[in-house]
């Protein structure tokens, strides 16, 4: 396996006056509420570790108050972590000096915010070029780069407008373009679309998917919207009360929830849209399906349904060349119908 683009190792954030002293004490085993009553400290992020592979879209998902926004801010130290390591580009970010940290922020990691964080007194193009300007790039080169970004996110023609003259979706495109302009190794999104209305949100999600195809950046994406997580994420981290509940691919999260909390959470997800054949196939007993069509185990149930239903008898499921199981109409319908019934 290649070197991860981003590594987070047992990261903690405790809010309160003596947070450092609590690390390593048994108090940390207490629940949030107990700890707050006992010592006035609040746990924001509790012992979180994960790796993100280069080019991966890694989604952190949780309800408000679960610590996901804190987590993403710990990574670039917009909030100082209490303990733990964040390895990016071979450096432990938690140990960097201020100037070194600024270099990282200027060149390696960019962030897109829920409320955009644009500068109202600057035009669109100058907002996008802002990051380049602060790292000292010349006017021409940053203008050119910004113009590229304007075209990339589809804002051509709006360069000279002020942010307040744009709709929310367009403002977030500016935010996106500003993040991309620095050509960072890792892009971070903090609930970037939750302030937008549903149709625009879907457009923007597609936009992110498109950009991911085009520029292939590593992305860490924070959301409270499970649909969004399932749609965008290569892998999903589910948080609750600051701690990791489960990390896995979308179908793993839906197919094998780690606990009741996650199960309850994913119960209303249309499973046929997420689960792959791997989750519905039965063991191949031998020859019964010989000669039937072969589908890959990673095929999503919904996409496989037509082929399976059109075939009399079971269909073979393969991982690569090796047949690993079979599915028949009933297996498919169980998933689809169960959904309608709920």
């Amino acid at each position: 396996m290649t070197e991860p683009a981003l590594q987070v190792k047992s990261l903690w954030k405790i809010f309160g006056p003596n947070a450092e002293k609590l690390i390593g004490t048994p108090d940390l085993q207490l629940s949030r509420k107990e700890l707050q009553t006992k010592s006035g400290h609040v746990i924001g992020v509790r012992d979180v570790s994960f790796d993100v592979a280069p080019g991966e879209v890694f989604v952190v998902m949780g309800l408000s108050g679960s610590g996901k926004s804190t987590l993403v801010r710990l990574i670039t130290r917009l909030i100082e972590p209490t303990s733990g390591e964040v390895i990016l580009d071979g450096q432990d970010i938690t140990k960097l000096s201020d100037p070194a940290l600024r270099e990282i922020r200027r060149n390696k990691v960019s962030m897109v915010f829920q409320h955009f964080g644009l500068l109202p007194h600057r035009k669109v193009i100058d907002n996008i070029a802002f990051g380049l300007e602060v790292r000292g790039e010349g006017k021409d080169s940053r203008r050119n780069r910004a113009q590229e970004m304007v075209d990339l996110v589809g804002l051509s023609g709006y360069e000279r407008n002020f942010p307040e003259q744009l709709s929310g979706g367009m403002q977030q495109r500016v935010g996106l373009a500003r993040a991309l302009a620095a050509d960072p190794a890792v892009l971070m999104f903090d609930e970037p679309f939750s302030a937008l209305d549903p149709l625009i949100r879907r457009d923007m999600q597609n936009e992110v998917i498109r950009l991911h195809h085009e520029v292939g950046k590593t992305m860490v994406f924070i959301t409270h919207d499970l649909q969004e997580a399932l749609k965008l994420g290569d892998r999903i981290l589910i948080m609750r009360d600051g701690a990791v509940i489960q990390i896995g691919r979308p179908d793993e999260v839906v197919g094998a929830p780690a606990d009741e909390y996650v199960r309850d959470f994913v119960s209303e997800v249309p499973k046929s849209h997420v689960l792959t054949l791997r989750w519905v196939m039965r063991e191949a007993t031998g020859t019964e399906a010989a000669g039937s069509p072969v589908l890959q185990a990673s095929t999503i149930v919904r996409d496989a349904a037509r082929a399976v239903l059109a075939t009399h008898g079971p269909v073979r499921v393969a991982e690569g060349d090796r047949v690993v199981g079979i599915v028949d109409d009933e297996d498919i319908l169980r998933v689809v119908v169960a959904e309608d019934a709920s």
Binding site: T76, R105, F116, V134
Partner: peptide
Amino acid sequence: EASRSLGL
């Protein structure tokens, strides 16, 4: 916050 994240 957005500005800080740009490394100002």
